[in-house]
Amino acid sequence: MSEMEPREAAALRKHVGAGGYRPVHPGVYVTHGEWTRLTPRRRHVVKALAAMPRLGARLVASHETAAALHRCPGLRGWPPRVHVTDPARIRAQATAHVVKHAQTLDPLDTWLVSGVPVTSPTRTAADLALSQQHAETVVVLDDLLRRDLVAVADVEALIRARPRARSRVAALTALAFASPLADSPGESLARVVLARIGAPKPVLQHRFHSDGSFDPRVDFWFAEHGVVLEFDGAARFTRSRHVGPRTPEQVAVDERLREDAIRAHPDVAGFVRCVWSDLREPARLRAVLASAGVPCRR
């Protein structure tokens, strides 16, 4: 802004006031149309890309901002401020646009993503495990493990290297619970809720073998009770990697045929589904399982 002519600055302020542009960081704007087309994660990435060149070379994008840059899912949405780590700071600092964390960084802790320095997936996983709630941590850890971007032993070593962290035990608990077999954030959260309500531990991504022509795989398999639990998120019916060239009508038909084939398998005694609202209200998931004969201890 300071390099603009007064007339240009006044015109920009007029557009911002009229809703034509949106500020993403002091002195950086995007058009309203561009902003509305972005997903919440991409909006946070845009904020990070705008902020990082103005924050100084020693600062590294970290925590939730690093997770966004690494394309991790965000269970509770993305923070309004950009998170960075400043190795030169003694205490954390929060301003209107940036949260600065005070931590040392090993050279191996820093990657370059989209042209900006960002904590590695391993360091990001450790930072989030030490700062987020259990469910949010599990969602990110599951995703990073599934994409083979981290190893449990490496994340554990970073967590144990911070013995004075108050949330160290909780972080190690979340790491021990994490699994590369969860195929979506919804499945990760379902695992957390299942554990909270005392459901039997299910087998993840179980595949039913038949004559070879169709071997369906299911999200959760309670082998002792012969019950299949499927999580139905929007991704299963809308994302290209799940849908491919099929029409919505064909997707619905194929999913029904798949369910019929699973129900017909001799090992299957029950088939139930859950959705996001069931995970937000654990009593509903407990009822879904009870209807199929799967007991919960809590």
Rank of each mutant, 00 (worst) to 15 (best):
P185H: 10
A176I: 04
L194P: 12
E156W: 01
F231T: 00
L257W: 11
L149Q: 02
P200A: 11
T85A: 03
A261S: 15
T238K: 11
R256C: 01
A135L: 07
T85G: 13
A92R: 15
S62W: 05
R246A: 14
A94H: 10
V46C: 05
A170W: 02
D127V: 03
R256V: 05
P185A: 08
D106M: 07
E3P: 00
K100F: 15
H209R: 10
G244R: 15
V155L: 04
L128S: 01
G233F: 12
F214D: 15
W111R: 13
E5Y: 12
L175Y: 04
E156S: 09
S213G: 12
G33P: 03
G20M: 06
G226C: 07
P26E: 04
D211Y: 13
F220I: 00
K14C: 02
V253L: 09
F222I: 03
R7F: 10
T247C: 13
L145F: 03
L289A: 00
Q250V: 08
R166Y: 12
P53E: 08
T65I: 07
H101M: 04
G19H: 05
P200L: 07
E281Q: 13
V46N: 00
R58Q: 02
T137K: 08
L194Y: 02
R91T: 12
H225M: 11
D232N: 08
R13N: 11
V218P: 02
L69T: 00
A102P: 08
Q250I: 09
P200M: 12
V288I: 14
P248T: 07
V275K: 04
A129L: 02
L141W: 04
M1L: 00
V113Q: 01
E3A: 04
H15S: 10
S240K: 13
T247R: 14
R160D: 05
G20S: 04
D154N: 13
S120H: 12
M1N: 00
S210R: 15
L69W: 13
V218L: 06
R147H: 10
L149I: 03
E156P: 05
L38N: 05
T137E: 00
E136Y: 01
D183G: 15
C296H: 07
P6R: 11
L144E: 02
D106E: 14
R207I: 11
V228E: 08
S213F: 06
L194I: 13
R239W: 01
G293T: 13
S188D: 06
R162C: 05
S62A: 15
G19L: 08
T104P: 06
Q93K: 15
E224P: 08
G293K: 01
M52Q: 14
A61P: 06
P185I: 02
V116L: 06
A178G: 10
L12Q: 05
S2L: 06
